[in-house]
Computed example of a mutant assay.
Amino acid sequence: MEAALGPVHYALAVPALGPADHLRLQGLLLRAATGPRRGWGSNLAGLLGGSVVGGLGGYLAAAWDLQAGLWVVSTRHAGWNWELDGLGAFLAALGLVAATLLGMALLLRGRQRRALRALHAAGGEIFGAHELLLGEAGLLWRNPSRTLFVPWSRLTGAARKDGMLFLLADRISAFWLPEALLAGHPDRPGIEALLRRHVALP
């Protein structure tokens, strides 16, 4: 693998990737694999579509003289009751749907974060400290037990986030370089110039 790397320009001692940076990395990889997020245009179209459907529903309800109501009464406390009708019932139903959707989103997000923390803990030396060699033909990642060579052509993007430079490979994996590590290197401009020849740095 070292022969495939060609002349080595830089050898960097890269520290382990912490859990918080691992979460950021997985978020970048997910966006790289699924494409960019929907823009304002798509969100506005969805909002307008929902408004049209809601307006049509309101028009039909008015035209057909439809009514809805909610009445709750206590059998243990005489005279206690709670009643909603018209707009109140509609807002209560809307709030219930919104609370349900929000609860599901928070539950799924919590499960995802727990799964990613478990993945980081199980990754062991994959996310540990290693040596990263930047050569003429690509990058060579190695630690005491394994070595991986990646040609420059396999790099598909780069991102800077919270003090970390991530180099994406094939949109499903990445190398990480702390900005502090680059800042402390005597030839940071040379490293970034080498990387820019092969990937667009942010």
Rank of each mutant, 00 (worst) to 15 (best):
A3W: 00
A3P: 00
L5E: 00
A11Y: 00
A13Y: 02
A13Q: 14
V14Y: 08
P15G: 05
A16Q: 07
A16M: 03
P19F: 08
P19S: 12
R24N: 15
R24F: 07
R24A: 15
L25R: 12
Q26M: 14
Q26H: 11
G27T: 09
G27S: 14
L28K: 10
L29K: 10
L29M: 10
L30Y: 15
R31W: 06
R31E: 15
R31N: 12
R31P: 01
A32P: 05
T34F: 02
T34I: 00
T34V: 02
R37P: 04
R37L: 14
R38W: 01
G39S: 04
W40S: 14
W40H: 11
G41S: 04
L44S: 13
L48E: 02
G49C: 14
G50W: 07
S51P: 00
V53Q: 02
Y59T: 07
L60Q: 07
A61L: 05
A63L: 12
A63Q: 12
W64S: 15
D65A: 15
G69R: 07
G69E: 06
V72G: 09
V73K: 11
H77C: 05
G79H: 07
W82A: 14
D85K: 14
G86W: 04
L87A: 15
L91I: 04
A92E: 01
L96T: 14
L96F: 15
L96W: 13
V97C: 09
A98N: 08
A98E: 05
A99N: 05
A99S: 14
L101N: 05
G103S: 12
G103Y: 03
M104T: 04
M104F: 09
M104Q: 13
A105K: 09
L106W: 12
L106H: 10
L106Y: 06
L107F: 13
L108Y: 07
G110Q: 10
G110M: 04
R114K: 13
R117P: 00
A118T: 07
A121N: 03
A122K: 11
A122G: 08
G123Y: 02
I126Y: 09
F127R: 07
F127S: 10
G128T: 02
H130W: 01
E136D: 14
A137F: 07
G138D: 03
L139C: 15
L139H: 08
N143P: 06
P144H: 10
S145L: 06
L148F: 05
F149I: 09
V150Q: 12
P151K: 06
S153Y: 01
S153I: 01
R154T: 08
T156G: 06
G157F: 06
A159V: 09
A159T: 04
K161N: 11
D162S: 15
D162K: 11
L167T: 03
L168E: 01
L168M: 11
A169S: 14
D170S: 12
S173L: 08
S173V: 00
A174T: 01
W176T: 09
P178C: 00
A180I: 02
L182S: 05
G184S: 11
H185A: 13
R188V: 07
P189G: 08
G190R: 08
I191E: 03
R196D: 07
H198E: 08
A200R: 14
P202H: 05
